[in-house]
């Protein structure tokens, strides 16, 4: 599903990723862990096609992101859900509109958009706040809206960057249950986290990153 070959990413003189080789199989649930600045976010952004590698290759479902057209990348992104660390919610749009945005770009029927957006909001427990604006919500609630937007399109791959960073332990558990249920439906899930508690509580595959290199896998 996701294959990385000799992947390098530099930001000027700084090396963010250094010779990364990784294979995530279809339907796998993987944690990418490491301290801040280890390259977790960069790795996810490269898999998502939001950044271009300095060298190396990324294959998603056999498609090489280096050789993909802009249009095909747009279409591929519709199959990938991304939960951003900074949520990336639009403050001028309501919770409902923010979540529906991911479906609106696909040109789905409005009735279907409404139905799936409500389902998604129900799943994260925020259906009663669908008319609220992001700035009226707590950090945890905003995080959950970002998750709802990532899962509303039933993605084949779900990438999440520190998705529980703003949540209390109870909510963290709920969110992890949510990710596992999406995984059970067949999605490949990659979560970047520095939370030790999260890693201790799970049996999933863990990849450890430090200074842009993979130094362990379990």
């Amino acid at each position: 599903m996701i294959q990385l070959f000799h992947l390098y990413k530099n930001f000027g003189p700084n090396i963010a990723l250094n010779d990364i080789n990784l294979r995530v199989r279809e339907g796998e649930f993987v944690f990418v862990s490491g301290p801040s600045g280890a390259g977790k976010t960069t790795l996810l952004r490269l898999i998502f096609g939001a950044e271009r590698p300095t060298s190396g290759h990324i294959l998603i479902n056999g498609i090489n992101l280096n050789r993909i057209s802009r249009l095909k990348l747009d279409l591929l992104r519709r199959k990938i859900g991304f939960v951003f660390q900074d949520f990336k919610l639009l403050p001028a749009k309501t919770v409902f509109e923010n979540v529906a945005l991911a479906l609106e770009v696909t040109g789905e029927r409005r009735s279907l958009i409404r139905k799936k957006t409500r389902q998604s909001l129900k799943l994260i427990g925020l259906v009663e706040k669908e008319d609220a604006y992001p700035l009226e919500l707590s950090g945890g609630e905003q995080q959950r809206v970002a998750i709802a937007r990532a899962i509303v399109k039933d993605p084949l791959i779900l990438l999440a960057d520190e998705p529980t960073g703003n949540l209390d332990p109870d909510l963290t558990k709920d969110i992890m249950v949510l990710f596992k249920s999406i995984h059970m439906k067949g999605a490949t899930v990659v979560i970047a986290t520095h939370s030790r508690e999260l890693l201790e509580d799970t049996e999933q595959v863990k990849i450890f990153l430090n200074r842009g290199r993979i130094f362990g896998e379990r």
């Binding site: 802009r70 747009d74 279409l75 639009l90 937007r149």
Partner: peptide, 16 residues
Amino acid sequence: KEEIEILKLVGATDWF
């Protein structure tokens, strides 16, 4: 600008 960035991240084509 922010909205365009997010639209692109959720898979909007350039023409959209």
